[in-house]
Design a binder for these strands. Structure first.
Length: 320
DNA sequence: GGTATTTGACCACGT
DNA sequence: CACGTGGTCAAATAC
């Protein structure tokens, strides 16, 4: 991990360990640099996002762009065939395992109750994206990458049936369910943004919140409520099957690094409260214990009670 | 024309 | 009571 972009790790560490005041400036600088870097690197026609951003609030362009970047990365990863998945698994696995663990270790709380394996997939791809975009890996991503933005990816999927995984890639988030994004918000506490998704099934109240850091890396995924229906099994051919398979592989290797939480499937408000109450007490003990893999009861656990956890402090935008 | 995403605005809640 | 934040809605936009 030392070898991997001391740059990134440093930055990340600073993020959480430095005081907000002192880091705010450097943070902005970093953000700017990052933006420029991404834009320059991608240098691709970022149709929708930019357009949307332009149409919407220019002030948010910054964060928005970054965010979009994150999500698309995820999608991109998902789109990759098994081969790519394995590749990632290998590259990232060896490269990240250690560091990623460290990186994410800074993101306390992470409990993924016995969710369906499908949800694991979500966390997987997200882990990948996080890792990929966060570390020097960013550099590893082929410049050609479909790394553009969620919209681009989407369109790509739509237009190219060769993939045959449209729905899966598009909104399912890899967990087998279809999610639709209904909101995004900038958060200060864990500097970054949160994306709100809800199950596209009208009868399903399942929701999930993806927390991303400044680098648009998905640092945490919170599931709220559970699906009251089976995941739309759209696996029609071998390709998809293999994709899923590969995803799982990655899950096993990455899941432990990506915070995934499952909130009680009660109404949002209750969930929030419970979360608030449970976090501090439950996180440290149990999570530390199994901070490295699947928990029989919680499914995935990728967290360790971090004393430095800024979110354990009063307020810090996590209770709600 | 339908669906999904983006994003500003709104409301509820906690401090 | 004011302020900040989280979560959601809905219009605009893109595909």
């Amino acid at each position: 991990m030392e070898d991997r972009g001391s740059d990134t790790s440093d930055a990340l560490q600073t993020d959480d360990e430095t005081t907000e005041e002192s880091e705010s400036e450097s943070e902005e600088e970093r953000l700017r640099d990052l933006q420029e870097f991404r834009v320059a690197r991608l240098g691709e026609p970022r149709g929708p996002p930019l357009a949307a951003a332009a149409g919407g609030g220019g002030g948010r362009l910054e964060a928005t762009s970054l965010c979009a970047g994150g999500s698309h990365v995820i999608s991109a990863s998902r789109e990759e065939p098994e081969e790519r998945a394995n590749q990632l698994n290998g590259e990232l696995g060896s490269d990240i395992t250690g560091e990623a663990a460290e990186t994410y270790s800074r993101n306390p709380r992470t409990v993924c109750p016995s969710i369906s394996s499908g949800l694991l997939l979500v966390s997987v791809s997200q882990s990948i994206s996080s890792v990929a975009s966060s570390t020097p890996l960013d550099r590893k991503l082929p410049p050609t990458t479909k790394v553009t933005d969620s919209c681009t990816v989407r369109s790509k999927v739509r237009n190219s049936s060769d993939c045959g995984t449209t729905s899966a890639v598009k909104a399912s988030g890899g967990d087998g369910y279809n999610w639709r994004k209904y909101g995004q918000k900038q958060v200060k506490s864990p500097k970054g943004s949160r994306s709100y998704f809800r199950c596209t099934n009208s009868d399903c109240s399942a929701k999930k919140i993806e927390c991303s850091d400044l680098l648009s890396q998905t640092t945490e995924t919170v599931y709220r409520s559970s699906h009251n229906h089976d995941p739309p099994q759209k696996v029609r051919d071998g390709r998809q099957r293999s994709r899923v398979k590969s995803s799982r592989i990655i899950v096993e290797s990455e899941v432990a690094k990506h915070p995934v939480r499952m909130l009680p499937e009660s109404d949002p408000s209750v969930a929030s409260r419970e979360q608030k109450n449970e976090l501090p007490s439950s996180v440290p003990g149990r999570e530390i214990q199994e901070a490295n893999g699947f928990d029989a009861n919680y499914g995935i656990v990728a967290k360790q009670g971090n004393d430095n956890d800024p979110e354990l402090k009063p307020r810090q935008g996590e209770e709600k």
